[in-house]
């Protein structure tokens, strides 16, 4: 190694320059890869969302695009975005994107309500970061199915569900929580309560 080169490698500025160059190279590489996958990820997410909305109202999901346009109308009121499902000019219900705070992070979900907003048609979890195998089980169908046909607004008051142990028989005010995942179960119940309250205040 020449004397000059050795001096440069020992200089104070070298580590700084080196770090900058390495950072630029690797972040550049990541940005390129991100651009490359972004379209695919977005497309997939949009498609999944549309499929889920159709499924919430038991509408057919084949020929996704045409069916979605036929049955679903995206609506917006102030900041509240929602979807209206119509079949044979009868309103089947409304679907709202809702979110709440889970144990580790945000939980995103879709909730479908009857046209008068009083009953839950179905609940679907879109995104969650709960513990796999424990809180992650909020996406299991037995758990989500419990919310179906449950009265959420009665006498103009938003109802809160009561949590009971997994396996116990529940009445229409109760939800069986997941064993080992009390916080995640409660997060879902709270999320529904808070969001439906907001939806009711907005009034559609």
């Amino acid at each position: 190694m020449s004397e000059q080169k050795k001096n440069f490698l020992d200089s104070r500025i070298y580590p700084v320059l080196f770090m900058i160059i390495v950072t630029v190279i690797f972040v550049g590489m990541l940005a390129t890869f991100y651009q490359f996958t972004r379209e695919r990820v977005n497309l997939y997410q949009k498609e999944q969302l549309n499929i889920t909305i159709l499924q919430l109202f038991d509408l057919p999901t084949e020929r996704l695009e045409s069916n979605f346009q036929k049955f679903i109308q995206a609506k917006e009121k102030k900041n509240l975005k929602y979807y209206q499902a119509v079949k044979d000019s009868v309103i089947l219900g409304y679907c709202f994107p809702i979110s709440g705070k889970g144990l580790w992070g945000r939980i995103d979900a879709l909730i479908a309500l009857t046209p008068d907003l009083s009953k839950i048609i179905e609940l679907e979890i879109i995104e969650q970061n709960e513990t796999p195998g424990l809180g992650g089980r909020i996406t299991e169908s037995w758990f989500k199915k419990q919310f179906e046909n449950k009265l959420i607004i009665s006498n103009e008051v938003v109802q809160a569900f009561e949590l009971i142990s997994e396996g116990e028989s529940n009445n229409d005010r109760q939800i069986q929580q997941i064993t080992g995942a009390t916080a995640s179960s409660k997060a879902i119940v709270d999320m529904i309560y808070n969001n439906v309250k907001l939806i009711k205040e907005f009034g559609i």
Binding site: L30, F33, Y34, T37, R40, V41, Y44, Q48, W104, G105, E127, Q128, N129, E130, P132, G136
Partner: peptide, 21 residues
């Protein structure tokens, strides 16, 4: 991050169940 992006784009189901890990 490349692994994470790859899973999100090509194996979204597995990416979902692995969550933050």
């Amino acid at each position: 991050i490349i692994v994470d992006l790859f899973l999100k784009a090509y194996f979204p189901e597995i990416s979902k169940s692995l969550g933050p890990y």
